[in-house]
Amino acid sequence: MKNFTYHQPTTIAATLPLLDAEWGKTELLAGGTDLLDRQKDYVSQPEKVVSLTGIGGGFREMSSVSPPGVFPPIITIGAGVRLVDIAESKLLAQYPALVQAAGQIAGPQIRNMGTLGGSLCQRNRCWYFRDEHVNCLLKGGRKCFAQEGENQFHAIFTQGHPCVIVHPSTLAPVLIAFGASAEIAGPKGTRTTPVEKLYHAPVKETQREHTLAPNEVLVSVKFSGGGPQFAKFCNASYEVKQKETSDWPLVQAVVAFHFEKDSKIAKGVRVVLGHVAPTPLVSEAAAKSLEGKEVTEANAGLAGEAAVEGARPLSQNRYKVQLLKVAVKRAALLAAGVKPYWEG
């Protein structure tokens, strides 16, 4: 990899002046599992690396608050919290989707190294983008090579997207389904934004997969089930992978809703899809399909059918359409507490 100068500030305030107003010359380092790979392959060649691992306090902590009448608790997770600590947290009992998603990321070593912020802000895994010798759209080239090339792991919701990557984070769809907000520090102070607004589909070299400015730092995310009192917050994340571990999902579905008191009727349904589009994809159609209904196998299946409406797969990834239907159905059933009868 190209050599660089290294900084390890111990506060967010001391980090900000080290960042540039434009992408390219400076990179933030958290767990390193994405950045170091890119540097070794010369996909990223920063002149300065600013490590966030020296920052303590809330940046590295997870907290749970339950004001009177609020259930489930409000959770705040610092961007520097390791994936393993999310996967093994006792604070997240009401948020199994997040535990499931974090616990399935890659293998143990990656979960010991990687952070929440890294998961949310990592770069895409398209093999054309990651190839040093391919000058794709996101590296200043004129063409997305996946459109007509090897695209079996790319987007199936491709309409209007010149670049057909899938967003790589499995935690982002969960947090979006939870209605989480992100706290971001920048040169003008701190701002809060819904996690959903952190993402856009990049089309050129000067953009990332997220909407943070180059001189901003993701500090933490906060969420709450936020349902009416005495409601049961139900949520689950389901991924289909080729391999059980150390693999990226082919598709991911996150389903969240409430059961009021003893009701079995799904209210406030949110369905968010991962690894099928250049951003985490909120499926209004699937949510609408399940809203106000009992979460039966038939109704969950209908939500799956609704989720794939409008999919425009590429030449080699039509198979993902069926996988996505199944993933949405199973995520809805898991959220409702149905025993996973599909596990042999």
């Binding site: 290294y6 599992t33 170091l36 691992t53 010991n112 190294m113």
Partner: peptide
Amino acid sequence: CDRGTCGACTVTVNGRTVYSCTMLALE
């Protein structure tokens, strides 16, 4: 592999396993 995948470089850092190929020595 030198890409944080195969595990041959595994060491523990503060008791936790990491891929030493994917961590800067300075870290």
